[in-house]
Nucleic acid binder design. Structure first.
Lengths: 139, 139
DNA sequence: AAAACTGCATCCACTGCTGTTACGAATCCC
DNA sequence: GGGATTCGTAACAGCAGTGGATGCAGTTTT
């Protein structure tokens, strides 16, 4: 996967929602306002918020005064969940090459793949210890 | 950065060299042979082996019976060093967006960036506990 | 001298992401 | 009800990074 800005955008958006106490439909924040704080394009924000909504982290509402709000406490949203919501997975160069007839060559990719998944899990475990609320505390 | 196969290719190549006991110039393995075990293109392999050579993990020699060989024991090559040699760094979506006038918006990217670097370091730490020799043991 | 091999440059094709515009659908305000 | 607002999604162009292929200069063995 290419260099993606989606995870930073998602984390920023969630932190912004937490900062604005957007925890109910009548406090929804529009994609335009979120985009202005990055800064980036409202469409990019909506692409990310749609994924976060499908992951059950936020809810969105169309129409006037619409937008997004948190449906989970900010201190209960780990960044590993955010990463999985927008990216599927971390990546160090995911697909190892497939080997061929060579007996050793066939098993090396398997070992490489397990090393990569171990590293991905370590990154996810580290991210799970950081919550959206922590992003504001650190500021 | 896009989905890169460089790290898997590098790990596979180093494991293959270790398996063949290629630890001296007269045991050099050609890029064609390494490529055949992936399988991939010899040029792709040479692009990677050139980086590994600059990182001091292997040496290469041109000419007939040339190729690459290890210049460090396989059990002393951590995969974190390999990743840094070919990729520069792990990546979860490296550059957070820059903020603007908003006082909170300005500091969120900083917090996001520190979270990303923490995750990268966790992944590197995990990789450092796996050596090229371990890739063969696991097979 | 001939053959083999690395390293590098160049070219092309492909993929994924961002940014933008546009449109339909849903929702609120008057 | 009518109009304005906003989301979700699609379509498009532009850009960057990568893999694959070919060619060439330089080095080393035979």
């Amino acid at each position: 996967m290419s260099d993606s800005q989606r995870f930073p955008v998602a984390a920023h958006a969630l932190a912004y929602l937490a900062h604005k106490d957007a925890v109910a439909p009548d406090a929804a924040v529009s994609s335009a306002e979120l985009a202005a704080s990055m800064p980036t394009n409202p469409v990019v924000v909506r692409r990310v918020t749609a994924m976060l909504a499908k992951a059950g982290l936020i809810a969105t509402r169309p129409g006037a005064n619409g937008g997004a709000w948190l449906i989970k406490p900010a201190d209960q949203i780990g960044l590993d969940v955010v990463l999985r919501a927008v990216n599927g997975c971390a990546h160090l160069g995911m697909p190892p090459p497939g080997a061929q007839g060579c007996p050793v060559g066939e098993r090396i990719p398997e070992a490489v793949r397990s090393a990569i998944t171990a590293a991905d899990q370590a990154a996810a475990e580290r991210l799970s210890r950081i919550t959206v609320a922590d992003l504001l505390k650190a500021a």
